[in-house]
Structures are given as structure tokens and as C-alpha cells.
Nucleic acid binder design. Sequence first.
RNA 1: GGCGGCUUGGCGGAAUUGGUAGACGCGCUCGACUCAAAAUCGAGUUCUAACGAGUGUGGGUUCGAGUCCCACAGCCGCUACCA
Length: 855
Amino acid sequence: MSDARKPFPFREFEPKWQARWETEKTFRTPGPGDAGFDPSKPKYYVLDMFPYPSGSGLHVGHPEGYTATDIIGRYKRMQGFNVLHPMGYDSFGLPAEQYAIKTGQHPALTTAANIENFRRQLKALGFAYDWDREIATTDPQYVRWTQWIFLQLYNSYYCDQANQARPVTELEAKGWSRAQIDDVRLAYVAEAAVNWSPDLGTVLANEEVEEWRSKGHTVERRPLRQWMLRITKYSQRLIDELDSLQWPEGIKLLQKNWIGRSEGASVRFQISNFKSQIEVFTTRPDTLFGATYMVLAPEHPYVMSITTAEQQDSVVSYQLACASKSDMDRGDLNKDKSGVFTGAFAVNPVNHKPIPIWIADYVMMGYGTGAIMAVPAHDERDFEFAKRFGLPIVEVVSSHTGGTSTLLEAFCEPGIAINSGFLDGLPTAEAKAEMINWLESNSIGRRRVQYKLRDWLFSRQRYWGEPFPIVWKDGHHQAIPAAELPLLAPPLEDYKPSGTPEPLLSKAREWVELPDGSVRETNTMPQWAGSCWYYLRYCDPHNTERFISKAAEAYWSDDKPGMIDLYVGGTEHAVLHLLYARFWHKVLFDLGHVRTPEPFQRLVNQGLILGEDGQKMSKSRGNVVNPDDVVSEYGADALRLYEMFMGPLEQVKPWQMKGVEGVSRFLARVWRVVFEQDQTGTWQVSGKIKDVACTDTELRRVVHETIRKVGDDIEKLSFNTAISQMMICTNAFTQAEVVPLAEFIQFLTVLNPFAPHLSEEIHEGVAAVFNRQASLLSESTWPVYDPAALVRNEVELIIQVNGKLRERLMIAKDADEAAATAAALASAKVKDHTDSKTIRKIVYIQGKLLNIVAS
RNA sequence: GGCGGCUUGGCGGAAUUGGUAGACGCGCUCGACUCAAAAUCGAGUUCUAACGAGUGUGGGUUCGAGUCCCACAGCCGCUACCA
């Protein structure tokens, strides 16, 4: 379509307004210390999850959340808030490095090019960001503070008494040894079984394994020395403090389940003929009398020492078989239980019976103690295993007293204890408590709370990430001085993985080996590191003294537990980014660097946008919609408006190009309320618009209803209904003989956050004709609606007979029941349905409905 | 298997505390304008000839249920032997 055929000239005015906002810095947000900062203004911090700048550019999912936050930000700004609405790039990541492997080009170059493309696309959508606050996690000045925060973790331990992180210098003062301190740091080194991919040349998080495997990479399990972050110390706080946040309940639940708190007991079992004991965790201490065997994880450290000579071969080969499988594979085998007897026995502490010790891969080394007591009668997995290997099944809980002769399946519900000595007759809850008392008084076990959450495996062997600010000397790690930050990775000649778990950085010998004989840590941080604190940096992005100034941190926080007023992003980050960022924030809180205990007060997840075929957008399906195409065909305002009109923000919804045409048509109607084309095809301000008082009360009512509803709907993030109200308002203007200037500008103001370019352009055109001052619409204040304008004197009253609609009557708004009833009964339609009946009851809702119950 | 979400016309979706089901938009039909078309404007559009029926299915509470309660089904997402 040529520009002349466009329903309104967005190709001319959209770039024009974008340029003006940029040169005038319209959306600059002054913070403490900045020129024009007004500390008396209330703050509003609205944040998007920043994008990973991939080579393929923005997809239509990005502008969904970004437009929502943009509308909120512009709305709050019009209401007098000092709005912080920033954007940046999560620019470390494996794809840039994969591209470097293919082309030999330094990842910094591709990243810079990708960022430039993203920035161009974002600017073309007219978002009201303060571009002076733009950040990229790969920027050396950003890396500097990411590393600095890592050192805060490294130099802290978790004080269980105070229930908070404290500097390790406290421990030094108490005379703790270096080794003792290294054991309690929040960032520590440990040997861990990890997912190692030889061809990617890095370890992967559990949740990344499937993705890369499906792309044809191999992933195996092997133990490696890794950096870990002690997030588990925060398990309880991460659960409890969710309560203070306005997050979707589903996301809270997801995090709670991920942290996975369970209550029970630890119990120690004596190994026959050995000094050692095996400790297990159980949520069912009440079933201890029914524990007929034990199972150790194949990697359990005791396995080799307790295995008998006869069982040696089968145990070793089973261990080898398990070692090659990831946790995923173990899961795939699911119900098909496997395992091997070690030949050793333990003693059940309550009845002193010997019970065999097996190893099986249904027990995980990473959870609890890596060992279980098996109670086949009351646990599905144990039951299945016992059936398979012919192990004894002893029933100790019954749904009724007496028990059954043969169990067909495990009975896992609470019941009454049987065959359990001193517990007999007790209901499960009491039996648990009684058993824990017994275990504690006999020093065999104790009450225990267990979490599924594991410490965060924080190191990667890749190149394109933050290097650890750590050097090794004489076998010990130590922090490099903060003054030496940022520590940047050296350029490499090739980024190909070596096939060994040796980090890529170790190839840069000159960088690694220091003159004093110490060597640099060669692992790098995961991509999550940068996204754990970026929201803090936005508040003070150019500070060279601190990661955020005290003043900026104070100003952008308030009394609420979470710093950010509204955070919008996809559900895919429910348990990773959102958990990691909370963890880092709490560490910074404990150390006194931030004043709120939580980062994100209110969280909203935007729903996925599907392709026109109702399937997830993907290149292979060919159903991907490119925002650039939509902008060039319909304009940025149409794209923004369509994405908001599709349906509720949080809902999954399919793309419909016809829908884009629909909102484009709406924008054209708004345009034509004011402009009409003359003979030459030039748009001229229409004579319909007049600077007169509005005498059309219905038109005025619609305008004020629109001001009211759009404001309410923005607060509720119900953008689709706000737009529908603006469509109604536009239709009213279109049909009006005269368009009163003041009312129309109120409407334009309300439209501005949604369609900023079009509304500015129309506003400018109208202002020129009426000699009004041509200030930016984006800088005007949100209109106030007049409640009196909304009032209607007569309303349509719905008349029902026995709940069925029979008549509609115009009646005074405040008519009483007698008047309404009389009017209703006078209606012929009502008479038809009541004549042969007796009226039993009248239900009257003033101004709404009258229901006649008759039989 | 577990957890969570969803289910309303041909389509996307709207419906305070239970109170006119289908706002608004798409599509479609008809009309106006036009030599004609596109664009635009106007009218109509849940089903049914009508009585009536109707918010995934079956029950319940209520004067009244898309909305509340119970049971079930289907789709989508996440998670996966967590002791």
C-alpha cells in the first residue's frame, strides 16, 4: 500500500514524535542528585523483564508486556508520579558464544549489533523509556558491580541465630580458621554431580538440559568442582515472605513447591558389623515399625565400604549404569524400579530387626540424606520395589482397626497405627509426634524440616559470562581487591570447547597465570547473575562509586516490602530468575545495602501470544509474526493497541492479523473525527470541531464515562476493556454534529498512553487551528471526570416474571418499589405471564431490575 | 502421577457484591456512495419459522447462577520417583 492510501499518515508522524521525545528527553526520569529532581513527587517504579538480545530481534511477545507497562508508566506520569520505566539488555548468554564458535567473531561484536537492532525496534514502538538509563549486563561498568555483589556473597556467611547473612570478618574476629570460614561462605566451592555437555563445553542447569539435548547436544553427568551459592539458607524466608507480595497465587505456589518444604524426622539406623550409622529423612516417622529395608542412592558415600564381596560386582556395575544417566533419564524410567542388594544389613531401631540395605536409583543423592528407610506398606515406590524384589511388606497403618490380610497397593493416607508397639491405636498425626518424642529421647533421631531446594550451581565453563573475581593461591581461593573490578575476560582466538570440563578461559594462559604464582579462577557466572540485580542499577546507572547510591536506593524504595511497584514478564521465569533475584536481594538486605526485603512488590505475567493457527509461534511452523512488518504496514500505535485489545494481559491468546486491521480502523476513525482530506488529498482540520461548551449531555456523559472507565481499567491492567470504551467514545464523536474541543482533548489525553503518536499528532493539529499552546500531550495531566456528568435520570428497568425477562421499562432512577411494581403490572407483556397466577413475591433492585415471583 | 490455568456466538473476547448473557472488535449479510471496485458511512448478525432454548457435562443452593457448592469431562502449561 502506498503512503497516500494509508488511512492516516503514521509513517510521517510516528518517527517525527519519536525524534522529538528523544531530543527533548521527554521521558527523562530525574533521580536524587539529578537536575530537575523533585523529592516531593511520589515515585512509581514499573519494570519489564529485560530481553536477551538474540539475533532474530524482537518478537510480538515482547511488545505485549512492554506496551502494558508503557501505558501504566505514561498514565502514572500524567497523574503526577515520578515514573521510573527503564529498559536494558540481558546480553550475556550461550547463543552469542555459539555464534562466535561458528564465525570466530568476538561475542561482544554480535552482542553489540543485536543490541543495536533491539534498540531500533524498541524506539520504533514509541516506548516512554528514559534512554539515559539503558543498561547491558555485558557492559564492563555493569560487570564490575555484578562481580562486586558476588564478592558480597563470597564475604558473607549465614548466621542461623540472627537468621540473616553477616560478613565473614565477624568470624575472623572470633578466631575461625580459613578452612572453617570457607565452609560457611554464601559463595563456596564444592564437588557436585553436574550436567556436563562436552560439545557445548559447559555444565548446564537441570532445567537447561532438555533444551540443548533436543538441539542435538550430548549431556552427561559427572562430578566437578563448582562454585555454589548457599540459597538453601534462605529457604524459609523465601517461602514466608511471599505472603507480603502481590503476585499471582499460581506463581507463589510454584515457588513454594519448588522450595518444597516438608516436615518429618531424621532417623539413624545402625549398620550391622560397622561403626557407622545411616541417617535418613522421613515424613512418616509413624511408620518406622514397618521399615523392612533401606535404600541408598547409588552415589552414597557408604556404598563401597558396606558392600559385601559377593555383591561387589553387581553393585559396581549398577553404579556405573546409573552414573551415565542424568536425573532426567532416571525420571523417564519412572515406574520401572531397579536396584541391587549390597549384602549389608542395618538394624531397625524400634524393633531391633535386621533389614537389608539396597541401592537403587529411585533414591536421589541430592535430596535429604541420600538414603531412605523403605516402608513398602505405606509408600507407593517402596511397595513397587518390594514387590519386584520380594522384600517383606509389613502393614503398620490401617484405615480401620485390625488391618487387612493382604495389601494390594500401598496405603498412604493417614489412619490408625497397628503392629507398632507403643504407637498402636494412635491416629497418624499423633503417632508421628509420639515417635519423634521417642526418637529424640533415645537420641536416635530428631524432628527435622527438609527442603527440596538445593544450593545454586553458579559456575559455567563458557566464555561469554562474568569471570569470577577470584584467584587461587596455594590451593586456596581468595577475592581480588574490589578496586581491580571489573575483571574482564581476555579475548580468545577460538571459542571452541575443548571437549574437557576445563573452562574456556583456561586457554588464556597469560591472563590466568599471575606473576606471584597465583592463578585466576577460570569459571564464569551464569546468565542469571546479571538479571539478579539489574533493577537496582536502573535507579543509578552511571554511578562509579557504588552499585547504587544510598540516596537513589532510598528514593526508589518505599514502605512496601518490595521495591518495584509493578513487574511484568513471562511465566517461564516463575522459579528461576524470580527466585534467584529474591535471594540476591535478601542478601543485600541483610548486609544493609537495600532497605526492602523483597525486589518485586507486584508481579503480573503476560500470557503467551500464539500464532494464527493457535499453535506456539515457531520458525518451523512458519507462524511467526514479525513486529517490524506490523509496524511498517499498520504503524506502531496499531501494534500497541492491537496487542492490548487481543484479550486480558495474562491470558494465552492467538494472533489475528484481521484484528490489527480492526484497531487500525479505529485509529483511523479517531483521526477522521478531526481531519478530512481536501481536493489535493491533504488532511485539514474539520469544521466539526469547535471550541464551544458541550451541550450534548449524552456525548458529555460518554466522554466522562470514558475518562472514568479507562482510568479504572488501567489500574486493573484491563486494557482490552479500556480500548473498547474508547471505541464507544469515538463512535459517539463520529456521530456528533459538533465535536466540542475541550471534551475531545480530554479524550485524546486518555488515548495518549495507548496510542501516543497519533494522539500527539492530532493534538498538535488541533492546537494549531485554535491557537492553543502546543505543549506535548504526553506531558499533560490525566483528566478528572465529573461524576455529575455520569448521572442518568431515567434508567431502563428490567422486568422479570419468575426470573425470566418479560419487559423493559424506562423509569425514574430512584423510583421506589411500589412505583416500579405498579409500572410493571401495567405492562401487557407482564400481564400475559401473571394473569392466571398469584403473585407470591416481588424482588426489586433499584435502578436495575424487578422480579415478580408468581405461581 | 502431582500442581496450576482454561472451557461463553462463525472467531478474539465483555459481563461490580449472584441481577438485561454476548459490550467492543473481527467475519458475514443488506443498504448508501461509485460506471465499477476499494475505502468509507449506515443497518443487521447466539440458535430457533415460532413456542422457546442457551455460557464444556450432570446435579445442587437461590426469587434469580457464566458467576456460589458438589461430581465429571476436555484442552493448555509447568513439574516429575523429593522419601
